[in-house]
């Protein structure tokens, strides 16, 4: 769509800007202020310059948490994206069955994050949980409080359970937008199932998939409540992810300065990834429009 240049549109944006700025810019400024000081209270504080940044960037525990975070995010993306696409292809297209499946698939997304943790805590306990109990019955010594591997697999499984639906629903809506005529043409050409997917469905999905990968990456990157409830970050620190390290530092130990410095580093990582994805989305859209418009 051709947009009209009009700087008075700023007036329409202004109320939104004021509210978001109140929620975002003021706290962000405060975080920056914290990060260069050693704060005891508003009157007792010392300027420390870049000390906290040096400390945080070289802290092995945080580096480990960062590495774990990336490993986790990439693992769940590698599982959820193909699985989500597959489920979207399987979902019925119309009728009451489509509505029912849609509601059931959406269900995990609507559960408060700490309840997701509780559900899986109950489900995986060796004594009262169906999954934990069944695994022990068949002879596997399943225990998420002592085995890091079990804890990892369980958290990944929980995240797959919780969020694959988002990818599936995004792709489902992408598939719904493909006109029936495309499929008819493919049938006339006797195209194989794979060819239909590769040349008709996948191109339609790229747009929504980029959005999906962006959302999933970001949400997994700030995962907090679910592992906190399920494993508490343990055993040891095997499932302590970035958000949790930060929350422990900020609220339990009240290390305001270091946690602020860490927050800023965290935020810069998010900002970079977000920008890369955003540019990718915008270029995709431009390419599509560029095909239709010649000016």
């Amino acid at each position: 769509m051709n947009k009209v240049p009009n700087n008075r549109a700023w007036w329409l944006v202004l109320p939104m800007l004021a509210l978001v700025a109140f929620s975002a810019i003021v706290p962000l400024m405060t975080v920056v202020n914290y990060s260069v000081q050693d704060v005891f209270d508003a009157n007792t504080r010392f300027f420390t310059g870049t000390e906290w940044f040096v400390k945080m960037l070289n802290d092995p525990a945080l580096q480990a948490a960062l590495a774990r975070q990336f490993a986790f995010s990439l693992t769940i993306l590698a599982i959820q994206v193909p699985l989500g696409v597959g489920i979207a292809l399987l979902m019925p297209k119309r009728g009451w069955r489509a509505s029912l499946v849609l509601i059931l698939v959406t269900l995990p997304l609507l559960i408060p994050w700490n309840v997701v943790g509780s559900i899986w805590q109950i489900f995986t306990r060796g004594d009262i949980g169906l999954m934990g109990w069944s695994l022990r019955q068949i002879g596997y010594p399943y225990n998420i409080t002592s085995s890091p591997l079990d804890a990892w697999v369980t958290i990944v499984l929980m995240d797959v359970w919780h969020w694959t639906s988002l990818i599936a629903l995004l792709c489902y809506s992408g598939l719904q937008a493909i006109p029936e005529a495309y499929y008819q043409a493919a049938r006339i050409d006797r195209a194989s199932r794979w060819a239909v997917f590769r040349y008709i469905q996948l191109p339609k999905l790229t747009n929504v998939l980029v959005i999906g990968v962006l959302l999933r990456f970001m949400h997994s990157f700030m995962i907090y409540a679910e592992p906190f409830v399920l494993t508490g970050g343990g055993p040891g620190s095997a499932t302590t992810f970035l958000s949790q390290s930060l929350a422990i530092m900020a609220t339990a130990q009240f290390d305001v300065g270091p946690s602020a410095a860490f927050s800023l580093i965290y935020f810069l990582i998010i900002l970079l990834v977000c920008w890369v994805f955003y540019t990718a989305i915008m270029n995709l859209q431009k390419d599509r429009q560029g095909g239709a418009r010649h000016d």
Binding site: N6, N7, A9, A24, V26, Y266, I270
Partner: peptide
């Protein structure tokens, strides 16, 4: 309008901002 793309991007980054970052402030 001036800065529209950047404003939009800034909005999106807020959506991605981990709440843990803003907890204390």
């Amino acid at each position: 309008f001036i800065g529209d793309k950047h404003l939009f991007f800034w909005l999106l980054t807020n959506m991605m901002a981990p709440p843990a970052v803003f907890l204390l402030p």
